[in-house]
């Protein structure tokens, strides 16, 4: 079973400490734009944490499938990762990602790699709005619900 991070908009408070943690851990700076998890807010009622589902419910937009040079693959733990050396910066994965969580930095694509199995974002979420979990039926429902909200926000 795939293990990934799923978001719970119904609990998310919009504090965005997850974004700061991610950018700090992976890029050594505080910059939400570089974070692989993003919280989007709309009005007062909507806070949607968007996370990489590592292939679950990505359908034909799955980055691993759409990459023209096969620079994206699963590692031995099932984590979907981008090989920056192979990446040609075509931005197809960035444009297709249904969760909008691929980042382009200096013409290379970057994405969530689950921090080697101990996700930093989950550590600082006190609201229980992001969960590192095996994606089963219940989690798939949550992912689908989140994608509906994505349509509202963008």
């Amino acid at each position: 079973m795939v293990k990934a991070i799923i978001g719970h908009p119904e609990k998310c408070t919009g504090c965005r400490l997850c974004e700061i943690s991610c950018s700090l851990y992976h890029h050594g700076v505080s910059n939400p734009v570089l974070s692989y998890i993003q919280v989007h807010r709309k009005g007062v009622t909507v806070d949607v944490p968007l996370t990489c589902t590592h292939g679950e419910d990505c359908g034909e937009d799955f980055c691993m499938t759409v990459c023209p040079v096969s620079a994206i693959d699963r590692d031995e733990n099932g984590v979907v990762k981008i090989d920056q050396d192979a990446c040609i910066g075509c931005r197809i994965c960035y444009q297709r990602c249904p969760m909008h969580v691929i980042r382009m930095i200096d013409d290379k694509a970057f994405k969530c790699d689950l921090c080697g199995g101990d996700p930093q974002c989950v550590k600082v979420c006190t609201a229980g709005a992001i969960e590192f979990v095996e994606i089963g039926e219940k989690e798939m429902e949550q992912i689908k619900r989140t994608k509906e909200l994505v349509k509202e926000v963008f």
Binding site: C12, T13, C15, R16, L17, V44, T45, T126, A127
Partner: peptide
């Protein structure tokens, strides 16, 4: 329904 946070508040 849920909590709403200022920027950066856990």
């Amino acid at each position: 329904i849920k909590n709403k946070a200022c920027f950066g508040c856990p």
